[in-house]
Design a binder for these strands. Structure first.
Lengths: 254, 254
DNA sequence: CGGACGATTCGGTTCTCACCGAAGTGTTAT
DNA sequence: ATAACACTTCGGTGAGAACCGAATCGTCCG
């Protein structure tokens, strides 16, 4: 038995790492994936404009990304909506981005400079909060004993109580496939912010209670007035992460 | 203050996801990285032969991988030794491989078929145990209450006691930067095996006590006779993951 | 010192792929 | 119906990169 046979059992399966990486190895496709890290659904045309390529080019890229399993699509009439395939995809992309080298990019306009500042301050990362606000939340929760670093990073009993007091029942962050608490390396600060099911539940809660609002077609988050009060009273977050960074001003006229 | 100035503050830094992915987007470079997932140190020539390319080609690939931060190198005389840059690199590669599509590869020889069987059975995954053996360890530990899925996957008190009874003190898996317990999606079985600091400590312990032995210049692990006894008495692992899978035999002569 | 050896540099070939524009398909709006 | 719209298909172009072989550099050994 189990005798070698050139016809039978002459093939096997191997994960094709190069094929997956090739999907992300293009500037335009990488930009598309990073845009979709806001967790939203974009149309093909929006992504084409965002990436600065012709619609026909965007079509080709989306075909590759969808058939490669990185993106999920939905057709409605003449529109093509795409989003990331799932939380697992988003997490892997985040990890990869955390490992990637930095590249100098030119800032071309005042608007771009302000956009970048806002992104550094607070943004979505698929389904949780990133940026200075996200980092501050994770660190403050750890300091206050709501999260513990003892065995990895876990929610403490005090942390579960705190979530319940906010009105987030345990069912709100029950693990389907994802770990309750995960950390995600922040691009901008190179520090950890809160991810996983708890991070997602906290993000949903903050949105529902309008602690934060999300700008349309962008990853930017803004802390509302009531959000400032809530983050201060519930977590004691310092003022600097709750107030928007001052905008860059246009040069003085002559 | 903070006034826009075309000269000043006209550049910013962005993680270059595409550049990192481009490193892995080549078959040869991907093969090199996967080979190095055994956690070992290889010479340039060994990798060239393994990947089936000329030494000059291997040199170019290694230059890219090293300067991209994925590999660390060490020169000794006329030799060039390379290895993965660190545990974080290995984990990201594993995650990526778990997300990658499968590809059919031809099995060309009897030796290759047997090599593949052995890999499926038990192998190293950077610094911990993967394959059927690794999956069985993770699942049995969970069944026995040594690991709990409650908040992510964590070591229970019983688990810490069990490790201590084996002679693995808590210092042996103290977190430097890595989480104690992590899971890693197994390529071959698509199930989780144990990773993180605990996984690494367990692997080291098994090697030191010769429960397992590592084949030279390969990721293959073999369970020793004393290892079979230990895994059975300590964890109650079933026999099928402790005995090597029967080798494929050459075809009968005429 | 001279030869063997591991690794590197360089030139040249080949091939893949990202891109665009123009034309085409199907959907929604007037 | 006709027009505007979102997207797609296709052909052609240009840039980039993977590869090898030959020559070279530096190290180790006899």
């Amino acid at each position: 038995m189990n005798r070698w046979d050139a016809d039978h059992e002459s093939t096997a399966e191997t994960p094709d790492l190069a094929a997956l990486a090739a999907l992300l190895a293009d500037r335009t496709r990488a930009a598309i994936c990073i845009a979709l890290l806001d967790g939203g659904t974009w149309t093909a045309g929006e992504l084409a404009e965002y990436a600065g390529v012709a619609p026909s080019t965007a079509t080709e890229h989306l075909n590759l990304l969808v058939s490669g399993g990185l993106l999920a699509e939905e057709r409605q009439g003449r529109r093509r909506y795409v989003r990331l395939a799932g939380p697992h995809t988003a997490e892997t992309l985040e990890n990869l981005a955390g490992l990637a080298p930095y590249r100098q990019v030119r800032i071309r306009s005042l608007a771009e400079a302000n956009h970048r500042r806002a992104l550094h301050h607070a943004r979505t990362c698929y389904d949780h909060i990133a940026g200075a606000l996200g980092v501050a939340i994770a660190e403050t929760m750890t300091e206050r004993g709501l999260l513990a670093r003892e065995y990895g990073l876990v929610l403490t009993t005090a942390g579960a109580d705190w979530l319940a007091a906010l009105g987030i029942p345990e069912a709100g962050y029950s693990p389907t496939h994802r770990a309750h608490v995960r950390t995600c390396l922040d691009w901008t600060s190179r520090r950890q912010h809160l991810s996983g099911a708890v991070g997602a539940a906290l993000y949903r809660h903050a949105l529902e209670h309008r602690w934060i609002v999300k700008a349309p077609a962008s990853r930017i988050l803004a802390v509302t007035e009531s959000g400032r009060a809530a983050f201060r009273s519930q977590l004691g977050l310092p003022t600097e992460v709750l107030t928007p960074t001052p905008a860059v001003l246009p040069p003085r006229g002559p």
